[in-house]
Amino acid sequence: MSDKPLAPAIEGWHTMGDQPHLIGTRCTACGTYFFPKQSHYCKNPDCDSTDFEEVELSRTGTVWSYTNACYEPPAPFVAPQPFEPYAIAAVQLEAEQMVVLGQVVTGVDTEQLSVGMPVELVLETLHETDDDIKVTWKWKPVAA
């Protein structure tokens, strides 16, 4: 592991630190959440608001479904060599009433996942560049 600084793989999509949150927006008129952030028009057909507040989304949820990637995805994905399969989860956030995709933390495979399982958001390396370590959000089963 290098001592390069950590940097978000996608700028402004999550907070950093031990208890990270995804950063979304919320329509101040109808309460609809958006991730990725939406701050110009509300997509609720019954709402024409243009006023949004930036919010941190729930950092825990339950597994809606899950799978893994057994083959190396094409660019822009940057794959470690040799490629290691990783699990992926779609996670239901209760308050936001939405499902968010993400990789599952390293070391957890599909056999350890099930629909309805509680998970939390953590940060983990996506890939390294010459200057920094790009981190992104991943889902991690909550210890029972």
Binding site: A69, P76, F77, L101, Q103
Partner: peptide, 21 residues
Amino acid sequence: RFYLGITNPTYFALYARRRMD
């Protein structure tokens, strides 16, 4: 989604796994 490692089969597999569970 490609940058984060999510390809077309990911979506099909999520639907399939949900059917199983």
